[in-house]
């Protein structure tokens, strides 16, 4: 079944065309990669899918609903969650609160019940807390529940971002350079982790990544962007031998592991 269908997405920043005529058809439970040199427009595609930017033109159907023009929180409520290229945790809040905040749209009590701590407040808060703790234990992070997010080590913060995204109960998970700043060993573990998460939570996943080894080995399909245009699409083997890609991306000696 098709989960997401992006048609002719084009986005301009002033005069700069960051994404041009982007098309994508994503089936349920797929794991695909978006690759491309720095500034190719990968993050912009994520920002459009999640409603941070409204595409200049084009349409995205997600699970039968148009998302272009919707606010980020309503798109998240529909089932698209993401992580960020630069970690964007709620750093002065506890790990538990980071997770609880991601339960916002599923919370079933009114502001009046909140102000009086009455009605469904108690039961709902217990449920949210229990789910959050379960989720944290599932990722072996329950002992950090009380810790401020900013005090976690870097790798743990990256993991927390994924857990927080999962707390919104997504169908589609967008990971923006999850391997940035990791060493080869950590990257191996991350690859296993992503596979495992996808199966456990029945997710469809799109990853943006610079590291060829990473995307080549975990993605079933790749989309290559360059200057906002899709220059190639196919399975890793096809992409590896695509002349355009070699020229635009693999041929560039300055591709580094860290991105921005």
């Amino acid at each position: 079944m098709v989960l997401l269908k992006a048609e002719n997405i084009t986005h301009y920043f002033g005069g700069l065309c960051a994404v041009s005529e982007f098309n994508l058809e994503l089936r349920e439970h797929e794991l695909i990669g978006i690759i491309g040199p720095n500034g190719a427009g990968k993050t912009t595609v994520f920002n459009i899918m999640t409603g941070v930017y409204k595409a200049t033109s084009g349409s995205i159907m997600f699970n039968g609903q148009e998302t272009v023009g919707k606010s980020p929180n309503s798109i998240t409520a529909l089932g698209i969650a993401r992580t960020f290229q630069n970690i964007r945790l709620f750093s002065d809040l506890s790990v538990l609160d980071n997770i609880r905040i991601a339960h916002y749209s599923g919370t079933k009590y009114t502001p009046i019940e909140a102000l009086l701590h009455a009605g469904r407040y108690r039961a709902e808060e217990k449920r949210i807390r229990a789910h959050s703790m379960e989720l944290l234990s599932f990722f072996s992070m329950e002992e950090f529940a009380d810790e401020l997010a900013k005090n976690l080590p870097y790798g743990m913060q990256r993991r927390l971002e994924i857990v927080r995204a999962l707390a919104t109960r997504p169908k589609l998970l967008l990971l923006d350079e999850p391997a940035a700043g990791m060493n080869p060993k950590e990257i191996d573990r991350l690859m296993e982790f992503i596979h495992w998460v996808r199966n456990e939570f029945k997710l469809t996943i799109i990853v943006i990544e610079h590291q060829m080894r990473f995307v080549m080995s975990i993605c079933e399909r790749l989309v290559v962007l360059d200057f906002g245009t899709t220059i190639a699409e196919g399975n890793p083997a096809e992409i590896q031998n695509n002349a355009k890609v070699l020229e635009a991306y693999l041929g560039t000696p300055a591709v580094n592991d860290y991105g921005k």
Partner: peptide, 12 residues
């Protein structure tokens, strides 16, 4: 903490 992240975590 971060308004955009907040919106993206489903906070209205």
């Amino acid at each position: 903490e971060d308004e955009i992240a907040s919106d993206l975590m489903s906070v209205n």
